[in-house]
């Protein structure tokens, strides 16, 4: 924290701390449960593992009420625009946990339909390995996220301004001609799939390091 800037002065940093403390202890998760991991999310909420102990038990299925999205399960081509739309509908500040191998990297499903990691198309804060992860791992991820919120959060979300691109690996762009594209790319902005809207998928394969 720079002391010279008025926004980062004593008052502001204290305000950040208070805001972070409030936010981290009242995360409202939205379980974007698609597959097996969704059952483990349910198990985490059920009596034995009881996520209520960590202040994150208020599962809401409306994105407008939530600030933590738990993507549990694989996301396929048909589902990704829905996921992005729901992410856009969530109010700031918001965080995302990618739960399980499938959401994080495609897992065992290296097939034509499955998106190979949601972090190519969405910003993700915490990844959980496992297929599916144990409920304890999900709880640990929530704790880690609380830690992250406390350490890096700001009350007016300044920290997000520096993150101007997805933090995960960029899509492995295959440079296809229009004629070879079998699926028109979906666009979360228009909620449509059409041939006229083509995303600018540059050749990021070199810089992604994958």
């Amino acid at each position: 924290m720079e002391v010279s800037l008025p926004e980062d002065g004593f008052l502001v940093t204290k305000l950040d701390e208070v805001a972070n403390w409030c936010r981290k202890n009242s995360l409202w998760p939205m379980a974007f449960a698609t597959a097996c991991c969704g059952i483990e999310v349910m198990a985490t909420g059920a009596s034995r593992h009881d996520i209520a102990r960590f202040g994150a038990e208020a599962f809401r299925f409306s994105p407008r009420q939530c600030d933590l999205m738990i993507v549990a399960g694989r996301v396929v081509m048909k589902m990704l625009p829905v996921l992005q739309r729901i992410w856009m509908q969530m109010p700031e500040p918001k965080w995302c946990i990618s739960m399980g191998a499938c959401a994080s990297s495609g897992g065992v499903f290296d097939t034509y339909a499955v998106v190979q990691g949601i972090d190519r198309f969405l910003p993700v804060d915490v990844y959980i390995p496992g297929c599916p992860p144990r409920p304890e791992q999900l709880i640990q991820a929530v704790l880690d996220l609380q830690d992250k919120v406390q350490k890096t959060g700001t009350f007016n979300a300044r920290e997000f301004k520096s993150r101007t691109r997805p933090e995960g690996p960029r899509p492995l762009a295959m440079q296809l001609d229009m004629a070879d594209q079998m699926v028109a790319p979906a666009n979360y902005r228009t909620a449509t799939r059409s041939w006229s809207v083509v995303p600018e998928v540059g050749n990021h394969a070199g810089e992604s390091g994958r």
Binding site: V76, K78, V108, Y112, A113
Partner: peptide
């Protein structure tokens, strides 16, 4: 349906 079609049979 098809929001979770992940190609099991192809695998």
């Amino acid at each position: 349906i098809g929001f979770l079609h992940s190609g099991f049979e192809k695998l």
